[in-house]
Amino acid sequence: MTQPKIGVLALQGAFREHKQTLERLNIEVTEVRLPRDLAGLSGLIIPGGESTTMGKLMVDYDLLEPIREFSSSGGAIWGTCAGAILLAKQIEGVPPQFGTQPSLELMDMRVRRNAFGRQVDSFEAPLEVKGLETPFNAVFIRAPIIEWVGEDVDVLSKAEGEIVLARAGRLLTSSFHPELTGDSRLHELFLSMI
């Protein structure tokens, strides 16, 4: 079997950390900035960063439809923090002047931006995760929460009573940053979804 190739959306944000984590697992990784970069990928990670910036650049460079097609043709996608916002069908906490915020609208869930507050409210905490034997140290940075999920979405973890990790088929979403901790167990979970 040939090794899967994973793309990391590199418009803005912490794409380098995801790339390094995957490379430590001996996975071939490519940076995605334009639709043509999706060719030959079996998975795509949408990293943390600023979701409004990434959303705009996805619109400007016509990435929304190609990524939706990538998903419908069996490609796995994982969104972390800003990436989780960009996967959601509904987004709360969008500035009124925006009207709506661009999103891939792939995952049946409602996400609230900056749900824990500003940067001074950011925190890290050990998290019980379904399927992992020991807690995962999760870093929440101006993090969103998943307020509501559809019935096909499997909730994998909660923090302070809020959903922060969930999976639906080949879609994975986390409101924290596994790429910042050096713990690759969730990257391995994502690779198992391919």
């Binding site: 803005q12 800003a82 001074v120 925190f123 890290e124």
Partner: peptide
């Protein structure tokens, strides 16, 4: 939960890369 750790501060800074 811990707040204001070096990891949270430097991790937040990572989110501004490429921006």
């Amino acid at each position: 939960a811990q707040q204001g750790t070096l990891r949270i501060k430097t991790g937040f800074a990572e989110m501004f890369k490429g921006g």
